[in-house]
Design a protein around this nucleic acid. Sequence first.
DNA 1: AGACAAACCTGTCTGC
DNA 2: TGCAGACAGGTTTGTC
Length: 279
Amino acid sequence: MPELPEVETVRRTLAPIVGAQMVRTWWSGKNLRLNTPVDIEALRAASRNAQVEAVRRLGKYILIDLQGQTETILVHLGMSGRLRFFPKGEARPSHTHVEWRLKDGRSLRYSDPRRFGNVELVVRGEERAHKSLAKLGPDPLDDGLDSAALRAGCQRTSRPIKVALLDQSLVAGVGNIYASEALFQARIHPKTPANKLSLARCSRLAEAIVAVLERALSHGGTSLKDFISADGHAGEHSHYLWVYDREGQPCPEPSCAGKVRRSIQQGRASFHCPRCQRS
DNA sequence: AGACAAACCTGTCTGC
DNA sequence: TGCAGACAGGTTTGTC
């Protein structure tokens, strides 16, 4: 489900839990990503009576810092994960896997039908030592995106640029929707080998990535189906997508008579305009 | 090392 | 109406 704008939307809407005290932690007993069980005893120990100090984000990962604790809660939403808070007394939705009860009666719940996501602990201040976080590239919203650095990353691989963008080491946070959208805005064909891109085109791509993510964030993210923010609202950005899931529709560029084409790259749907986007 | 396919799991939609 | 098959916002693992 969620790419950077959706995860950032969740992070922002989680602001009301900052300062709240966690009192009890519950686990469904179902394994999450890679069929690994939640280390519920460690999670309980870290969360018990701990006050939420801050909610941070690294790429598509959410970190919940706890006052006075050496460990931080690390959440990845996978494809169908949701992190929401609920008022006191509201029933647990189906597929809830982790629940933190807050002292004021509210609860924070992680639900995930497909269980591709994960909830674990990382040592605070050493997040980057975690295997998944170690390889993350720059975060386009927090760090900005330097054209020369993007070019250098592209030079290291001959994979198609669309595929390279999905690997989080080049840029953190770009997923399947925004990879297609950014390549459209930069007028780059998704099958172009990454190492064939000139500095000028990398520069255009860097600008497009930042612009596309910021634009989606301003709409609260994209809800095709599952995505909702921590306070339960769907994102509005699906109404503003240029090419993603628009197969056969006219190219959004008014001066272009092309139609959006769908293809499969690395087993995942890609969308582009064959007239505007060149290799 | 780099590229690729398959795997993880459930829900929803399409077409017969 | 029922059922099979395709497909979904992500990441990891094994194989070549």
